[in-house]
Design a protein around this nucleic acid. Structure first.
Lengths: 126, 126, 126, 126
DNA sequence: TTTT
DNA sequence: TTTT
């Protein structure tokens, strides 16, 4: 059993990439609020990754600020930095995501810079 | 909601320390098995911390190899390395721990044979 | 470990009662949606009980239709009917409740459309 | 989200049946211990059902007394008694089961009352 | 109806 | 690096 259940808000729009074999991977961070002693509010910023069909769904339906419930497993991944140091990073590999709010329609998102157009990969204008 | 539920085995004996104000903190890592594609077994090594009374209980009752269920919250903590780099570390702050196995005392792997009496170490009658 | 986590909407306003010793008990049912085969939506109606301070909070802050996350334990309770039959009833004893929506005050069930102003019903400007 | 996570012991051997369309269904009850006030131990007896491949696995690998972790969803099912009364029954529909103990092979179970001998069913001496 |  |  390795089960994580989080309710939080996207700290950023999801980023969707593709592996060489063509698998979609979405990654984003959610802010999970916590009530610290003395009525203080703090947040943990927790990295989420989603794969394949769930990754596409995230890319198409989630935006910064939106509240979700994420269910998944906690993974500690090792990698090497450019200068050869070993590092560990923790992330939640999502198995299931529930949208607790509707997506903000495009005309009141400041994120979409090109009127919602989608460009073939080699033409993205920056 | 920030909930983590893990079943795994201690990868090491717990280390119990005390803050300047006298609070106990136990820390240890558990190995949580995962079934990767193709019948392969892999494990995630996940750092656990426990505070105060629960920390003492961990220190007194858990040993390397023992299987537990840990319930807690996922925390991302920031710190600075000695050479001034910022790092983030993830850990599960335990709120509740269930022992899924009795502790194996080294000298006494069978059930305690003397009616539950506890002897000072130099007086154990064998 | 006996852990239940539900996201659903109140099927009714909470009912708050008091035991002879003066403890508050709130009870209500939540509808938890499920996606059955073929895009069909069904719901489970699950009884929730909350005790003491949490019961008061439920009574004061929750109304029919409101979406919540409830965390608790599953309890099977036995009782006898008036004609002496034994019955069993399942309910979730809430340990923690998160409000996923603000309480809708009766006079203002739609979204407030005018910069947060609230109008008496006969003056809504359309 | 409708998530239940239980750790308990089988109160009975699983019963495996088949629907008319040939789907396997296993059902059994687990005893989940709880620590009531005053060091008292009580248990909830919670009905579990499993379907298809998981049902077969339960039938083949679980026996009375064995400890498991069950993950699933809480379902309230309605039915009519023979004399036409409506009843509701709660059960956990298992999605995943972890065996926290090996199955006791018949010959070293203490339940066997005759010095460990195993009798073909028609010869059991009582 | 019930587990250790 | 960050959400409301």
């Amino acid at each position: 059993m390795n089960k994580v259940i989080l309710v939080g808000r996207l700290a950023q729009d999801p980023e969707v990439r593709y592996t060489q074999s063509g698998k979609a991977v979405a990654s984003f961070t959610i802010a999970v609020n916590r009530f610290a002693g003395g009525g203080q509010k703090e947040a943990d910023f927790i990295p989420i990754v989603a794969w394949e069909k769930l990754a596409e769904t995230c890319g198409n339906n989630l935006t910064k600020g939106q509240r979700i419930l994420a269910e998944g497993r906690l993974q500690i991944r090792s990698y090497e930095t450019n200068d050869g140091q070993k590092r560990r990073v923790a992330e939640v590999v999502a198995q299931n995501i529930e949208f607790l709010e509707r997506k903000q329609p495009a005309e009141d998102k400041e994120a979409t810079p090109f009127g919602g157009q989608v460009f073939p990969e080699e033409e993205i204008p920056f």
